[in-house]
């Protein structure tokens, strides 16, 4: 029973995001080696998201932390392998796209229920904002450390 829960809630979503983000690399014409590394980044993102979510953190914070994690992963990998950062970032961030929320926003809009529409809309915008903030925070940190390192040398 317990193992089944873990499988359902943790392992399967991570597996799906691994496969999906590797396949997504084709759309950006990334070569196979980088595609697999970027896919691992996508899985890592999803794992961190689920770990925070299952421990009961507020949803927006889950998105913030996992976006920060994927940003950190892609900055590190990009420095290591000398590739552009967005090659890893673009694939890694795909599993975070809140497809369900966007869809629900649209459905409530068609349904004409203004109250639940504005609720859903605010939630979607908040999630998009927290993903952006997660990426912003890490990138700003990385830029700052690079400037400081340059001055120290």
């Amino acid at each position: 029973m317990y193992i089944e829960n873990v499988l359902q809630q943790l392992i399967l979503p991570c597996l799906y995001s691994l496969i999906a983000s590797i396949a997504f690399g084709v759309q950006f014409n990334i070569k196979l080696r980088h595609m697999i590394m970027a896919g691992i980044g996508g899985t890592l993102t999803q794992f961190i998201f689920l770990a925070f979510e299952l421990s009961g953190t507020a949803e927006m914070l889950c998105y913030f932390f996992s976006a920060a994690a994927v940003s950190m992963y892609s900055e590190i990998m990009a420095r290591r392998l000398h590739v552009p950062v967005n090659m890893y970032l673009v694939v890694g961030i795909i599993p975070l796209v809140p497809g369900g929320y966007i869809y629900n926003t649209m459905i409530t809009l068609i349904g004409g229920d203004v109250e639940s529409f504005s609720h859903q809309f605010a939630e979607t915008v908040g999630i998009a904002g927290s993903i952006a903030m997660g990426v912003f925070a890490v990138s700003a940190l990385v830029r700052l450390t690079r400037i400081i390192m340059k001055k120290a040398i």
Partner: peptide
Amino acid sequence: SMNLVPGITLTNCMRDFI
């Protein structure tokens, strides 16, 4: 719809803002 998500546009947008 996930196939149609403008991934590269969004990441470039964030990185240009930064």
